[in-house]
């Protein structure tokens, strides 16, 4: 059984088909890059996988359970328990410190634990920046806080939307190194990106065009760069 399975998914806004009959399976521990030009349906697909939207047609199975008909409240619970989100614009709460931002995810999931949150920050190389506010961190550091927040509740799927879109090359490499490490530890990664370099380092690349899957192939060079 696949960890994530999308069956004949379509998302229709009026006359526009943002997604058109998508079928996709993601296995546990896989690192999948979803690529495509603007307007190809990447963000719509990410919202559906991330339980922030529902398909107009089709079924979404997460961990064997059909979540396509769930209520908004149930989707919030599923998102909280099973999905770790990483955003292009980081979206840290600007009046909370790095460690507090990580603890917010714990707060909504179960019980805040400052020690555990500090460990998560150390894992992304920010142990010494834990008490800093987002405004005192660089873009790369903010993205690493965002990654620590996504990891803290040990989600089934880590879903990243253009995670290196706002970063320079150095920080992009740091983030990709963290992804490699997570993949080695068995995490399931779905990365939405338009950056070919980010797509190439993934295990598998799915290319969308006009709301359809144009190609879905394993990256032959995967593992060689590591």
């Amino acid at each position: 059984m696949s960890l994530l399975e999308l069956k004949n998914i379509s998302k229709i806004y009026g006359n526009l088909k943002a997604l058109d009959d998508i079928n996709l399976k993601v296995e546990k521990g896989e690192w999948v890059a979803i690529m495509g030009p603007s307007g190809s349906g990447k963000s719509t697909l990410m919202n559906i996988i991330g339980c922030m939207d529902k398909p107009s047609v089709g079924e979404v199975f997460l961990d064997g359970k059909d979540i396509s008909k769930e209520s908004a409240r149930s989707l919030t619970e599923i998102r909280r328990d099973k999905i770790g989100l990483i955003f292009q614009q980081f979206h840290l709460i600007n009046y909370l410190t790095a460690v507090e931002n990580v603890m917010v995810a714990q707060y909504y999931h179960s019980m805040p634990d400052e020690e555990e949150a500090l460990e998560a920050l150390k894992r992304v190389g920010l142990g010494d920046r834990a008490k800093h506010l987002p405004s005192q961190l660089s873009g790369g550091e903010q993205q690493r806080v965002c990654i620590a927040r996504a990891l803290i509740n040990h989600p089934e799927v880590i879903l990243a939307d253009e995670p290196t879109g706002n970063l320079d090359e150095t920080n992009e490499n740091i983030v990709l190194d963290i992804f490699r490490q997570l993949h080695e530890e068995g995490a399931t990664l779905i990365v939405v990106t338009h950056d070919p370099e980010v797509g190439e380092v993934a295990e598998r690349t799915v290319i969308l065009e006009h709301g359809r899957i144009k190609s879905d192939k394993q990256n032959e060079d995967f593992g060689k760069q590591i």
């Binding site: 009046y95 909370l96 507090e100 603890m103 714990q106 707060y107 019980m111 805040p112 634990d113």
Partner: peptide, 19 residues
């Protein structure tokens, strides 16, 4: 840390750091 303590930490941080 209890959820209540975190709740208070968040709202006081919001008031103090967004003064």
């Amino acid at each position: 840390m209890t959820r209540r303590k975190m709740f208070m930490r968040m709202i006081t941080a919001s008031l103090v750091r967004r003064r």
